[in-house]
Design a protein around this nucleic acid. Structure first.
Lengths: 199, 199
DNA sequence: CGAGTGATTGACTTAGATCAATGACCGTGG
DNA sequence: CCACGGTCATTGATCTAAGTCAATCACTCG
């Protein structure tokens, strides 16, 4: 279930662990790239620091995520990585990975497939963010995530997390769900949402 | 400058063109996947249609974009593609592409690099959408897109397009830029924005 | 020249952010 | 075994930034 499942065993084996204290940098812009990182625990942010010292967050990687995929194809980092919380990370060395891709086309294929799926998923989330109304954003999420029966959606985590994913405050999401339930559009059983497929 | 520049010549050569009328489907969910599409002109949307018949847009591909990268690794489509406007597309056949990847590691590498960069860019745009304030969203965009001098940002297109990218109405963006200029935070010369690096 | 598009600004409205409070639940350390 | 601190879930009240509607001007293109 891990994000790094797709890695071939010998690359996995070459992984090395490292612990970070909160606020500690993992790497800095300009340094030579070393490989693919997997967040074992904690959270790491990728930031670009502008000359005036302010941070612009490029990405937040959470427990289980991988990051710096693009750095495999670039000699140096273009942003800083800083531990947002205390964190443990695993590094899969660039040389190992690229060598494995060269000698094992199946590994390359798996990586490509993984990246392509990420692109697809990210585009979809971005598209969802183009929807202004909270309710329609929720509808979009539900439509895309219905189970095989076409009526049931299992929330992957707490509602608060979903709210962040949708780009809403948790309050706004609670209210929206409450209103949708009141209108009979959905019904809720904890983290299971059932659509009223009448319409 | 094309989105499909990275394609090796023999795959490019295998491309076949097709014209679509507005509203015409390019493919439907469930059909066998055929390859990578490049939009030569016009616009195509990827949609999932829920049982009640409403569309949830997964992605909008514009002139110059490529789409269906993930379909290279899946036997069937999981959404419909429909021409939003009259459009011309070029299809690079899946078999050609995968064969090329197998025989030419450099092509595979280029594709991986491309996907990895897309993932990075998409994550960043998503991160930007997490910023609620219009002004901070603009600041994020500027910080990430400053030129080498650290002060100048060239807008890639019309302001309206940027607004869409930022997830703002164009009015909101015009106003935000006007206010930032009034406050002396930036100055504008047409599509060139210069930051006042004082702070 | 007129149609179409981008740029810009004004007035008004509203959806969602913010601030705040409460109850349920859960692990855990004394 | 239970009290306490933490997080999630939920709802209320208030405020404001951004959306919506609308108008004007400049510009380009056939």
């Amino acid at each position: 279930m891990d994000e790094a499942d797709w890695l071939p065993p010998n690359v996995r084996a070459a992984g090395t662990k490292r612990a970070l204290k909160k606020g500690q940098p993992l790497f800095r812009a300009g340094q030579r790239t070393v490989g693919l990182y997997e967040i074992v625990s904690g959270r790491v942010r990728l930031v670009r620091v502008d000359p005036s010292g302010r941070e612009a967050i490029l990405h937040r990687a959470d427990t289980g995520d991988t990051m710096t995929e693009a750095s495999l194809f670039s000699p140096t980092y273009h942003c800083d990585a800083i531990a947002t919380t205390a964190a443990r990370v695993r590094l899969y060395p660039k040389a190992e990975i690229l060598a494995e891709f060269a000698r094992n086309p199946e590994a390359a294929r798996a990586f490509m497939a993984r990246l392509a799926h990420q692109v697809m998923a990210l585009r979809m989330r971005l598209e969802r963010r183009n929807i202004h109304s909270a309710r329609d954003r929720v509808r979009h999420f539900l439509a895309v995530n219905v189970g095989a029966d076409g009526r049931t959606v299992m929330l992957p985590g707490p509602v608060k997390e979903l709210a962040a994913d949708l780009g809403l405050t948790h309050e706004a999401l609670y209210r929206t769900l409450a209103r949708m339930a009141a209108d009979g559009e959905i019904s809720r059983l904890g983290s299971i949402i059932r659509l009223a497929r009448a319409v």
